[in-house]
Computed example of a mutant assay.
Amino acid sequence: MNSTSRIKSILQSGSLDSTLTGFLNFDLRSLDIQKISDFELPTNIRLGHLVEKVVSKLIQESINFRIIYENVQIIENQKTIGEIDFIIENTASKQQIHLELAYKFYLFDPSISSEPILNWIGPNRNDSLNEKLYKLKTKQFPLLFHPCAVSQLENIDVSTITQKLCLLVSLFIPYNLKTELDPKYLPAIKGFYINLKTFIELHNPDNLYYLPTKKDWGIHPATNETWQELNTIENVLKLNRLEKQSPLCWQKQGNYYTELFIVWW
């Protein structure tokens, strides 16, 4: 994996306005980074943990924030009841921030509800933006004030901490979506989604494709060097559909790149 491409993809990820999430937003662009030192990305961890490692490195490389605590497991009666992602501090103001981080991919299904915030779901329909926000509100952010957290976070006055969310999202809309979305979602929209039948019908002989592994999701397709014909990936896509898996597909036509999910539903 190209570390430069991975870091760039994270810095350029979309984020949602606080009026949509209900939480103060922490924008990675607020990090004052003069130069990012070379570092090797781990290869044996899941995408979410990989992003945590990169964001940790970015904060460490910044001159305006420092990490006080990172990945603190809160333990009660010898059982882990949750984890706090970061406690960081602004080096100038000394303001401390409880920072929760998430890196997500959501697809817009307008058939679910008349409330747009309820319509963003995971590619395989087993999670949603609304569920994530509910968990943050009821579990992850309140964890800071749990007596066990207060006792574990030495020299931290939790009553003065600001809580912020760094929700990095890539949003995908239905192919030829007819309804208009709230403009606040637009900066995070990366592409569209279709089913396999429509994908094959829309195939152009000039198109080339690549099915990235999940660890490469979010990286711009232009960084990819290996491309395939439709007949090379078609059987894989049919198997994905049978297994109810919705793969991300990168499409290349000349110098034009598209990101799309091919959904089983």
Rank of each mutant, 00 (worst) to 15 (best):
I97T: 10
T179I: 14
Q73R: 12
G22K: 05
G122Y: 07
V169C: 11
W250V: 06
I200F: 09
E131G: 10
S13N: 13
I262V: 15
L248C: 06
T91P: 03
L211D: 09
S56M: 04
H146L: 11
L101E: 01
N176E: 14
N25Y: 01
N71Q: 14
H98N: 07
F108R: 06
P42A: 05
E100D: 05
L58V: 07
V72M: 07
T258H: 12
K53C: 10
C166Y: 02
T258M: 09
E229G: 00
I233E: 05
F108I: 11
I161F: 09
Q34P: 00
Q245K: 13
K137Q: 15
K132R: 12
I156W: 08
I219V: 14
Q34K: 13
T162L: 13
D32S: 14
Y209N: 07
L165C: 09
I112T: 02
I117V: 14
F108S: 05
L16W: 06
L196V: 04
A92C: 09
N124M: 12
P187R: 04
R6L: 13
K94W: 00
I74G: 02
P42V: 04
V54Q: 07
K94H: 13
R29S: 15
L153Q: 11
I67Q: 06
K35T: 13
K214Y: 11
D127A: 11
N231D: 14
F108P: 06
D17I: 03
E180S: 14
E229N: 14
Y185A: 03
T21Y: 01
L239F: 07
G14A: 06
V158D: 03
T21F: 01
K139A: 05
E52C: 07
G22M: 05
I59P: 07
D182H: 00
G218W: 01
Y106D: 03
R46S: 09
L167K: 00
N155M: 12
K178Q: 15
S93E: 09
D127N: 15
W120C: 04
L47W: 05
P187I: 03
L20K: 10
L242M: 12
G82V: 02
Y106M: 02
F145L: 15
L20Q: 11
I200M: 12
K8N: 11
S246N: 11
L107S: 03
D109V: 04
C148R: 14
R6G: 02
S9I: 03
F261C: 04
K132G: 06
N124D: 15
H98T: 00
K94M: 08
Q253G: 09
E89P: 05
P247K: 06
E234M: 09
P110S: 10
L11V: 02
K53R: 12
L20F: 08
L168C: 03
F39E: 11
S246G: 12
L167A: 03
G191Q: 01
P110H: 09
T179W: 02
L153N: 06
P187V: 06
Q228P: 00
I36D: 10
E115Q: 12
Y193P: 03
F108N: 05
H98A: 03
L177Y: 10
K79W: 01
K135I: 10
I67M: 08
I36S: 12
E154D: 13
S159G: 07
S113V: 04
Q34R: 10
T21G: 05
V158C: 11
Q34M: 08
P110G: 08
I7D: 01
L20N: 11
K164Q: 15
L144T: 02
Q251M: 15
P212Q: 08
H220E: 14
